[in-house]
Design a protein around this nucleic acid. Structure first.
Lengths: 193, 193, 193, 193
DNA sequence: CATGAATGAGCCTTCATTCAT
DNA sequence: AATGAATGAAGGCTCATTCAT
């Protein structure tokens, strides 16, 4: 599809994404000029690769999204529909509170890159499938729709953010507590039966 | 306490807050210069009344906060501890998804105005009291702490935001669904049986 | 001449000048708004008493100027013309490096207040008289004119400023060194005859 | 050392400095926005080249500083130590009262540009060397230290400023008179005997 | 007379984006 | 392709001064 990049161009692409990843990790807002300076490249080069800050952010988020989708697809193989959903959601919130690039990309009403839009849809349909299976098993309250999954995960991530834990580990902990509570409310059948 | 404003100053104060309210309602970020232009006042006047955008936003949020606190205090009189908590949280998320000034002020780790800090503390302690009463009645899972209430409400508000309903009414609806689910997960005892 | 102030007005006047004095001493630039706030008075009141920052500064400088003039007049009684001039100049530079209000007022090409203009002229004519007497005694090089006295004193004060001593005492010391050197260059006769 | 500028960038650099030079000459305080407007360039361009007004002023002052240093180094070759010092100081005060960019840069306790700091140190050490040689020849009073040279030159420049001559030629004249007097006070040996 | 709210020109600075080299 | 200089809209904030109360 896309023409493969020349070797030097590919190297620059990698460098830009690496720098962006570092900035995201330290909580610095992504500014393309800034990224250019830190990667030792010209602004123009960065703009050639990433037309907007959003495009760059989405690129940074891509591996995380792919991992979540991959997990979701594996989860579909789990015979226990409820457990599969539970694990999928757990992974999702863990990722959100651990990788700062995911929350904004997931919550955005639209994506800058087609690739990201595709991933987002994938994630959504995987979630839908998992939810349907859990629901078919009679394990989930009927009022929850697939369109609620992403918002709810973003909501938990945001709640964790507001809670204000300093370390990633603490954030993961809080996320687990919140998700557990929510799942408790989602499920119809008793935990172990 | 605070010296009452001169009549003309009071009029300007009102006008500024009204303009800010309108901007908040239409989702425009508050910028003091902008507020000045739209209210037909000098920048200096706006700065005299509100030193920072945060101070103005908090002022806009104040009535909403006060109403929530008032409700919370009335709720404390309810004999049914669980229902009191439930209604309080319902009002809170309704307010959050209805009045755009509330979410940022509530989620902020610190407030610009002492008055707001005080209100925030009030709200928090009312919530704590309601939670304690519900817990004393054995109605709430033990792992939830008072420090989780605000984050969870903000989380729900954020989830509703991500869900993307266009009208306030739809947002209130979604908020109810989410809160109901969460409460289901919080409660130990069956609904009313 | 000037109508004496009402008692409360006089009290305000004093308070303003005192605050200004304090600001000058701590090196803060005089801003009438600032002075008003610190003295607990309205801006309008400060403006009524002092139309501009310069007027206030000159008022702050007035006692210092008067003291210098008084000294100059006493010095005119000294039989030793050279010594009289020397002492006058010494007092002048000491005052300049000690009282931050004097340098700008003295160096200004024009004054805001008539009273200050008058004092400035007085100081200048006293200096002239002292210089003339010293010159008559054959003690001073002919190329120095009365119009040079003020600039030279300001120059020394500025040199001391650039030298950058931290304490007033050190500044007085440096000023003495500089003045001594200059006087050495001004005088025709040997120090002790 | 520093990467040479691209041709267009160099042209802009020149234009900015030229405009700044003109502003300095007409006594207007340097403001970067103002410089941008007058040179027909974007504000950002001016900021890119000169981060602060001080940096620009120092750049304007640079040629003058270099010329003084060059002269000082030539003066060190003069066999007559006193004459060498005298000529150096003469050039210095002439420059100060002729080029308005020099006084503030020289008098500043710290410089914005490393290059300027270096020049300043150079000038200072040249002056020190000249003073030492003159002192070694027994021509200078012992109480004068190298740290006094810069302040004294600034002081003379300031005295000339206060004297208020309208034309550069008149200022140079006054500066000569003041410097002559000061040198008279500095020297131990009779002029030429 | 005193007050202090209001004014708004004016300065500073940042940053997303374009385009000549 | 890469570069990075240039752009300039946009926003933030201060402060001397006026004038209604």
């Amino acid at each position: 599809m896309t023409t493969p990049l020349r070797k030097d161009a590919a190297r620059n692409w990698e460098r830009i994404v690496a720098v962006a990843r570092a900035l995201v990790d330290e909580g610095t807002p992504l500014q393309l000029n800034d990224v250019a300076r830190r990667s030792g490249l010209g602004v123009g080069t960065v703009y050639r690769h990433f037309a907007t800050p959003e495009a760059l952010l989405e690129t940074v988020a891509t591996p995380g999204l792919e991992a979540l989708i991959a997990h979701g697809e594996r989860a579909l193989a789990d015979a226990d529909g409820w457990r599969a959903l539970e694990e999928f959601l757990t992974r999702t919130v863990e990722a959100q509170v651990t990788d700062a690039s995911l929350a904004p990309v997931t919550a955005a009403p639209a994506n800058a890159l087609p690739r990201t839009a595709e991933l987002t849809r994938s994630l959504w349909s995987t979630g839908t499938a998992l939810l349907d299976r859990a629901r078919a098993a009679g394990a989930v309250r009927p009022e929850l729709t697939p369109a609620d999954l992403v918002p709810l995960m973003c909501g938990i991530a945001h709640a964790v953010h507001v809670h204000g834990d300093a370390t990633p580990a603490a954030r993961v902990d809080t996320a687990h507590r919140y998700l557990t509570t929510l799942l408790e409310g989602l499920r119809t059948t008793p935990p172990t039966a």
